[in-house]
């Protein structure tokens, strides 16, 4: 008892502080750094790039036009046979400034300056000028964290717009991704437009993703194509966030 008492007299405050520090850090971890990103959002507000919502929408529309045209032409042929046509993109989006990049080097994430209060939910689709950017994996009251499609853990079911050959795409950092085909001999060539497929569990079909840069048909186990993402992933300033129609029937949002 005496020894315990003496130890406490000597190290009590220290032990208390250590426990306090660890508890505080654990708290920050558990609420996903909410406290830090919220302060960050406040501080970075004066430096947000200034575009009007109209400008962003116009730019995005112009840049996407070519890709969307090819996509829609092909889709149109198919839709003649289909009755249950689902609109590919909801109309009302939320414009959000990109206020930060990933807080370490291994993840391709961005933080955007709009959150739950502005109506963003986990799983929402994020697109930039030119195409798909990623999806929201975590929201705080005024910020959201977006996992970019260029992240290696981010998998998207995609299809070649011209030939409708399917595959899935894995990010390769920066603005490149690798697409693996399901078919052994896919009909694909450099320059083809790539968009999300109806097999994708996280994204609605028909969103433009990028274009094929090179093809390697001899790759084992599946043929591969290198895709150049059409959205400027490495210098995003503003993005549009759309509610995700697939978010309801999917449970895979652990967000790691």
């Amino acid at each position: 008892m005496y020894i315990l008492r003496r130890w406490w007299d000597r190290h009590g405050i220290r032990a208390g502080i250590v426990c306090l520090v660890i508890a505080a850090a654990w708290g920050v971890r558990q609420n996903q750094g909410l406290f830090v990103v919220e302060i960050y959002q406040r501080l970075s507000r004066p430096f947000e790039p200034e575009y009007t919502q109209a400008e962003i929408e116009e730019n995005a529309a112009v840049l996407e036009l070519q890709q969307r045209l090819i996509e829609l032409e092909n889709q149109n042929q198919q839709l003649q046979q289909l009755l249950d046509y689902v609109k590919t993109r909801p109309d009302q989006g939320i414009a959000a400034p990109v206020i930060g990049r990933s807080a370490d080097h291994w993840w391709q994430q961005v933080t955007i300056g709009r959150g739950r209060r502005q109506g963003i939910q986990v799983g929402a689709i994020v697109s930039g000028t030119g195409g798909l950017v990623g999806r929201v994996i975590q929201v705080t009251p005024n910020t959201s964290r977006v996992l970019l499609i260029s992240d290696p853990t981010s998998q998207v079911g995609v299809t070649i717009s011209r030939s409708r050959h399917m595959g899935y795409m894995r990010g390769q950092a920066e603005n490149r991704a690798v697409m693996e085909f399901f078919d052994k001999v896919p009909d694909v060539r450099a320059g083809d437009i790539v968009s999300t497929s109806s097999f994708s569990q996280l994204f609605p079909p028909g969103l433009p993703v990028g274009r094929v840069e090179s093809v390697n048909l001899n790759k084992s186990p599946a043929p591969e194509a290198v895709i150049e993402l059409s959205a400027p992933i490495s210098h995003l300033e503003w993005v549009m966030v759309f509610p995700n129609p697939k978010v309801v029937d999917s449970e895979v949002f652990s967000g790691n």
Partner: peptide, 21 residues
Amino acid sequence: AIAGLALGLIQDGMTSAHPTH
């Protein structure tokens, strides 16, 4: 070690906890 532990937990919160920092 304590400093590493505390800051690692915080960074986990800010990016992803798998794998841990």
